[in-house]
């Protein structure tokens, strides 16, 4: 059964369906959260919150608005970003600020990741963006910086960053073959 069908059952309280859903989404959720949050213990905590939230709020999923996986990962990303931002704001731990501004920011986890060809393909497509497009997209998405912070880090005007983000995502879409 697919994730969207499972979510409907989960919304009706079906625990078995939740187990199946867990099997489908826990890898992508955990991988994404760890990519953004970095810290292993905190990543596990956030992933757990997200997965439990799926159980609690499955009824909110609306198939008319997008795929189940997109819904789940959007939720996971939002939670992961919230966590790094509040950690940064609290100065609770200094995230390595000087992450290489040039390279795509996905090296650290790469070896452990199992998305195989898809990852390879995304990497290739990221490589095809201009450096500024890539940095704008990855600093925001993988590192959880706001576009203002991205602008500061890259010493670019806000408008330029917004444009780079949009162009970067659009180009990524073309490269990945997401025919739109």
């Amino acid at each position: 059964m697919e994730a969207d069908e499972l979510l409907v059952l989960v919304a009706a309280g079906d625990q078995k369906a939740f187990e199946d859903l867990y099997g489908l989404v826990s890898g992508p959720v955990f991988g994404l959260v760890r990519r953004v949050v970095r810290d292993p213990a905190q990543s596990e905590e956030v992933a757990q919150e997200v997965l439990l939230e799926l159980w609690r709020s499955a009824a909110r999923y609306d198939p008319g608005r997008g795929t189940a996986l997109a819904w789940v990962l959007t939720l996971a990303h939002r939670r992961a970003v919230d966590r790094v931002r509040s950690a940064r704001a609290a100065g609770e731990r200094e995230l390595r600020m000087a992450r290489r501004a040039n390279g795509p920011a996905f090296d650290q986890v790469a070896e452990e990741v199992e998305a195989g060809l898809e990852r390879e393909w995304v990497r290739r497509c990221l490589d095809r963006l201009t450096a500024l497009q890539r940095q704008s997209v990855t600093l925001a998405y993988y590192d959880g910086y706001t576009y203002r912070e991205v602008a500061e880090r890259l010493s670019l005007p806000l408008g330029t960053v917004k444009t780079r983000m949009r162009d970067g995502l659009t180009r990524l879409r073309d490269c990945l073959g997401g025919v739109a």
Binding site: G27, F30, R35, A115, Y141
Partner: peptide, 25 residues
């Protein structure tokens, strides 16, 4: 645009720790 972003997410998938599964379930 969100679905483009989700492609970035998907490529980071990694197996979740077994203990997490037990806790969540």
């Amino acid at each position: 645009l969100r679905e483009d972003a989700v492609r970035l997410a998907w490529s980071t998938a990694a197996p979740a720790p077994a203990a997490l599964r037990d806790r969540v379930l």
